[in-house]
Amino acid sequence: MQSETLTLITILGMALVTYVTRAGGFWLMGLVTPSPRTEAWLKQIPGAVLVAIIAPTVLASSLAETLAALATVLVAIRTKNVLIAMVVGVAAVWLLRLILK
């Protein structure tokens, strides 16, 4: 159990670094122009980070998670709706865990 002060400092730290990312791009572009290489790297970050977050669960936990992720991908491609894909993914993992137990 962590202390209230520690969690509060963590949340304020998260808020600060997030605001820096929101204001920093506009601010920096008023000073310098980022190199094409830096720009190319920044563009790659969101996808790579999201892959890294899900990879251990999707690829290295159990068959239920792998199959449910596959169902989520198929629904997301078909509907282009994150919310529907999420609901299907959660329902699929619930069902598959019951079946594959």
């Binding site: 963590t10 730290g13 998260m14 997030t18 990312t21 204001a23 920093g24 920096l28 920044l42 969101p46």
Partner: peptide, 22 residues
């Protein structure tokens, strides 16, 4: 409690805002 990891990861995940702001 991984305070540093949480704040650092938050920064990394949100770095895409830099491009949007630019």
């Amino acid at each position: 409690f991984p305070m540093t990891a949480i704040i650092l990861t938050t920064f990394i995940v949100n770095m895409r805002h830099l491009l949007m702001g630019a």
